[in-house]
Design a protein around this nucleic acid. Sequence first.
DNA 1: ATCACTTACGGGTGACGTAAAAATC
DNA 2: GATTTTTACGTCACCCGTAAGTGAT
Lengths: 274, 274
Amino acid sequence: MIEIYLLEHLRAFYECGTLSAAAEQLHIAQPSVSRSMQKLEDILEVTLFERQKNRIILNETGKLAAEYAKRILDEEEEMKAHIKAYDRSLHTLTIGSCAPGPLMELLPTATASLSGMTLSAAVDTEEKLLKGLWNSDYGMIVLAKPLPNEDFICKEYRSEQLMLSVPPFHPAASYKEITFADMDGQNFIMYAHVGFWEDVVREKMPHGKFFKQEELANSSDLPSFSSDITLRMIPSRRNNRINIPFSDPESRVTYYLIVLAKTEKLLRPLLRNL
Amino acid sequence: MIEIYLLEHLRAFYECGTLSAAAEQLHIAQPSVSRSMQKLEDILEVTLFERQKNRIILNETGKLAAEYAKRILDEEEEMKAHIKAYDRSLHTLTIGSCAPGPLMELLPTATASLSGMTLSAAVDTEEKLLKGLWNSDYGMIVLAKPLPNEDFICKEYRSEQLMLSVPPFHPAASYKEITFADMDGQNFIMYAHVGFWEDVVREKMPHGKFFKQEELANSSDLPSFSSDITLRMIPSRRNNRINIPFSDPESRVTYYLIVLAKTEKLLRPLLRNL
DNA sequence: ATCACTTACGGGTGACGTAAAAATC
DNA sequence: GATTTTTACGTCACCCGTAAGTGAT
C-alpha cells in the first residue's frame, strides 16, 4: 500500500519542482523526499521521474500520479473535516428564536438538561427559523405562535410582556401602563437584536424614531424597551429606570418551542424539564 | 495525518463487525486493530465507537468515517491501477492490421526500431481499426488503402499478392496463375484470422465453401490460401504445396501504415526504418 | 470455559536526520 | 562556491506480536 506520507511528499514535489524545495515545504530533510520518490516508483513498479545527474523531473506518468495524490489527500482532508463537523453537529443543539427573551431563560435550562451537548443560540426571522429547522441548521426554534403540524412537536413555553423603559424623570414615569399610541412619534433607543419586537414597535408606532445600539445597556435618557423577561433575567436593567408595561394586546406574546418530530427523542430531556 | 493502514483497519472492522474478525481478515493480531481504532479517535478528536465492556461498535460518526475510509482506499487502488495502466500504454505500441501479412513483416522491424517498447498486434476490421486509432486502442494501423486526411500520417508500406496453395497432385498445380472464377464453388481451408482477405475470397468466389481452422498449417489436401508475404516469412508453407498467384486485380493489395499525426513523433524511428 | 476487548511490554521495521560524494551552474 | 540529487549510516518512532487482565456469554 502507498502510505499517505508518500503521497504528501509527491504532492509537495509536484508543487515545488525540486526535492529541496519540497523538503523545505514539508519541514523534513531533503534526502527523505528523495527516498520517498524512489519508494513510490518501487511500489508502483513504474518510472515516475526523468533523472538527470542533478535534476529530477516528473514524467507524464509521474504527473498523473501526482494528480491522484492531490485528489486522495484532498479527500482525506475532506474526510477529517466532515467527520469533525458531523460529530460536532451530533453534540450541538442550535436554538433559533424570534426574540432574545425566551433564549435568556431557555439557555440555562437547556445547558443543564442536555449535559454533554454544546448549545448555540441565535435570533432570526420566522422565515429563516422554519427553513433552518428543516435543514437542521436549527435543532429547535422558538416562535411567537403555535405551529400545528404533525411534522413538528410544538410546546407552549411562556409569555413575554413588552415594557417601556424610561428614566425616572421622564413624563411617563408615573404611568401604571401605557399604549403604543401614547408614545408614537417619539425617539427610542432600541437594542439591535430584538427579533420580531422591532416589527411590532415599528408597526404600532409608525412615527417613532428608533436608534439601534449593539449592546444591551441603559446608556441614554431616551426611552427604550424592556420586558418582564429581560427584567427578571437582567435585574440591573431596573437601575435608574422605570419600566411600564404596554397595554396593547400586541405587547404580550406567548412563545412556543418547536422541534422536528423525528428529533424529539434527542431533545426529550430538555422538553420535559421546562 | 491519517495513515492508510488506519483506514484499512477501520474498513476491515466495518466489514467484519468485531476487532477479532477484522484482525483475522487483516492477518494481524487483534490488539493492533484495537490500538488503531483508538488512534483514529485520537487523531480525529472524535468518538467513533460505542464501547461496552467487551463489545465495541461503530456509532454514527464512526460509520461515516468508515464510508470515507472505503472511498479513499478505493481511490488509492484506482490510482495504482491507472498509473500502471498508463505507464504500460506509454511503453506499448499496439498495431492493428486488416490482415496478418503486413504484421508478419512489420513486427520484427518494429521490435528493433522501438527498443524498450512492448509491441502488441491484432487483426481487426477496418471500422474497428479506425475507431481504435482514434481512441488510442491502436497506436498504428495497417489498411489496404491510403487514408488521405491531415489528422493522419499515411505511409505506403508494401503489397501482398494472394495465392492459392494446393498439394502437388491437385489439378491446378501446374497453372502459372489462376483466377477466382476458376476456383469458385470448390472447398477451401482458410486460416481463421486472415482479416479482409476473407471478405475478398467470399465475394469473388460466392459458391466456395470455406472451412476455418485456428492454426496456420497445411493439415489437409484441400486447397488453401497463401501469399508472397506468408511464403517469405514462413518458408515451411512451401513444403509439399504448390503456390499459384491469383491474377484478379483484387488479389493484389498495397498496404498503408497509418498513425495519428500527433503521435508521429513517438513513432518516427519506426516509420523511418521501413 | 470461551470469547471479546484493553493494557503492558519487548522487538524489528522503516522513516528521518546527518554527513558526504558527485554533478551542474 | 552554491545548488541539487543520491548514497551511507545511525537513531528513534511506531507498528506489531505476545502475554496478561477484565468482563460478558
